[in-house]
Design a protein around this nucleic acid. Structure first.
Lengths: 217, 217
DNA sequence: CAAGAACCGTACCGTACGGTACTTTCAGGG
DNA sequence: CCCTGAAAGTACCGTACGGTACGGTTCTTG
């Protein structure tokens, strides 16, 4: 899933290492454990360097989100011709990837952080998270269902609306439950993904796409 | 840590007033603004009383959730005979109510609080929120779709699964977006609710229920 | 009316955090 | 070989919070 970053790498290797340690602290201690002294200690750097590099604590948090987002690189789908079966498969793969990403410790920790911060920083971190984290995934899904439409397998007027429907079918209230700490959320992501795709195709699939679908239960 | 209490008006009127002020502080200042001194000042009570009544800060937070949950009383649906139209209408009403509840300031503030606390308190507040806040809504929806099934308007094997589908169709990623501070989430809840119910009925409605539904767009 | 509990207001304590300043270490470059 | 700059390590400061203690005031109750 995660690929080496090719971009001009906003931060130096040393800084990336520091951000890595900061993420580690955040993941297994929550925001309260993410103190500037703690980060400095864990990363073997001085607090003065932290403030020089990131400005202040908020700058550090933003940098952590940017760094994490830069690690996750979603390969862009190229416009291969889709069949009914391959559309279904790609949708299932996307669903599983989405659930996996949302359930990841780092993702959960960063979302918790941004949510906790949102009331007092004007949603600065939240915007950042949505902008740099979600947009990649959104684009991938949009490209996929757009290909499905062009191949005559999907039918919809508003691609955004169709995607939101798909998202809701996949995630339901799982994300919020996980954010709240509910551990027994997804018992079987594969089954969940399959169900969501089946429902999505029943809603937006053309006859061509539904040809080899299982009958209504 | 405060003791578990029983239902009949868990707290005294005076304590309820204090909790009301605490909620108000939380809503427009976030968790950081919710200091014990601040609550005492806003509610014209002493810190000593706070600690006497609620044990410690965590006890106060728990009490706030319990108090808020006790205010929201969802009337139980009785088993009136459902028609295709009335099922549709009740589903739409439920959808709108759900969106309205999730978008409420107090709900958002408490969810943010519980999410921010979840890493370090073992999801105690999160569990409380799900248990006392969501269960009411869940029961109401389950009763509704169960009535729909008994009336021959809905078809499903697993009621839980059907409900989760409905929930996902209604909420999609709106809840998390709002928690992150995205303001332009729901532009038109009525339209959103209508769309969700339409999709839900296409997935789980029988021919009887679909008789007077609009054609596929 | 008197005794006692409940409670308010405030002052206080220890701690821990964000942020700054200073000294030391070390690598590279003329 | 020394000069310079970056960064580590440490000590420090102001502040603000959670929690406690105490004197004064109101409310209850017999």
């Amino acid at each position: 899933m995660s690929v080496e970053n090719l971009e001009p790498s906003e931060f130096s290797p040393r800084q990336n290492a520091v951000l890595e340690q900061a993420l580690r602290l955040l993941v297994d201690g929550g925001e309260k454990a993410l103190t500037t002294s703690g980060v400095a200690r864990a990363a073997n750097c001085s607090k003065e360097s932290l403030y020089k590099w990131f400005g202040d604590r908020d700058g550090l948090l933003s940098a952590m989100i940017a760094y994490q987002a830069s690690k996750v690189r979603t390969f862009e789908r190229n416009g291969e011709r889709l069949t009914s079966a391959s559309l279904h498969d790609h949708l299932v793969i996307f669903s599983r990837d989405l659930l996996e990403v949302l359930a990841g410790d780092v993702s959960l920790a960063l979302n918790r952080l941004a949510i906790g911060q949102s009331p007092r920083d004007g949603s600065k971190l939240g915007k950042l998270l949505l902008e740099r984290g979600r947009k990649q995934i959104d684009r991938r899904a949009m490209a996929l269902i757009d290909s499905g439409k062009r191949a005559g397998l999907l039918r919809f007027n508003d691609a955004d609306e169709a995607y939101h429907t798909l998202y809701g079918l996949i995630v339901s209230d799982l994300h919020v439950r996980m954010l709240l700490g509910d551990t027994m959320g997804v018992t079987d992501t594969a089954r969940q993904a399959e169900k969501a795709v089946t429902a999505f195709l029943r809603l937006y699939g053309t006859e061509k796409a539904l040809a080899d679908m299982p009958a209504v239960v």
